[in-house]
Simulated assay, not measured.
Amino acid sequence: MRKWLILLCAPLILAVVNLAIWQNETLIEHGEILFLELAPVDPRSLMQGDYMALRFAMADAIHQQLPKQEQHLDGQVTVQLDPQRRASLVTLDQQQALAEDQLRLQYRVRNGRIKFATNAFFFQEGTGSMYEQARYGLFRVGSKGQLILTHLVDAELQKLGQSKLLQPAMQ
């Protein structure tokens, strides 16, 4: 009986995982681009191993508008994009109509800290110095405000690090 249960559940689990992968790939390929400004973090924890701890400047502005004791919350904010697609906070989202160059972004409050998609950027071992000039996170945004961090960029919005396309192995 257990064998049949496993045989029935395995395809379902694989379908769910592949659907999530497909949704993320679609978001990366077709999502709108925007930049969120990075805020300083404790320099001792900026580079820990093969990742960079991230904090975003917009998080402070959101914190000021939230109830003081909020420790666990999922919400959305409305942001305005400048001509370079850098986002600035307009308001906590009330499902109001969006003006031109405005988007909704999802955020989470966990343990009193605001997070947009992630709070860390992972990179290849030994390449951390490439990211020391990071000033913005480059995100792809979906129609419901879901975010995926794809790159870190410098003050001139130039991508940092290496982006390699997967290529077939040479035969």
Rank of each mutant, 00 (worst) to 15 (best):
P43K: 03
F122R: 03
G137M: 08
Q71V: 08
Q94M: 13
L157M: 10
I148H: 01
L34Y: 06
R113A: 13
V109F: 09
A57I: 02
L152V: 10
E132H: 12
L160E: 10
K144I: 08
Q64L: 13
L98W: 04
R108Y: 10
P67N: 14
L105S: 01
L34P: 13
R108M: 09
M130K: 13
Q69P: 10
E70L: 15
T78F: 03
F122K: 09
R85W: 07
V79G: 02
R44V: 04
S88I: 05
P67C: 14
L149V: 06
A120H: 03
P43A: 00
L46R: 09
D50M: 12
A87P: 10
F121R: 02
R104K: 14
A57Q: 15
G126Y: 04
Y51K: 12
R135Y: 03
E156W: 09
S88P: 00
L157G: 12
A99N: 15
A61N: 12
L73Y: 15
L38Q: 08
L46M: 07
D82G: 11
Q96S: 14
I148E: 07
M58H: 09
Q48L: 09
Q48W: 04
F121P: 02
L92S: 03
L73A: 08
R104F: 06
S163T: 13
D60K: 12
L160M: 10
Y51W: 12
E132V: 11
Q124W: 02
L73N: 11
G49T: 04
A39N: 08
A134T: 05
R110K: 13
L92H: 06
E32T: 11
Q96D: 13
M47P: 00
P40H: 07
Q96N: 13
Q76P: 10
L160T: 00
A39G: 00
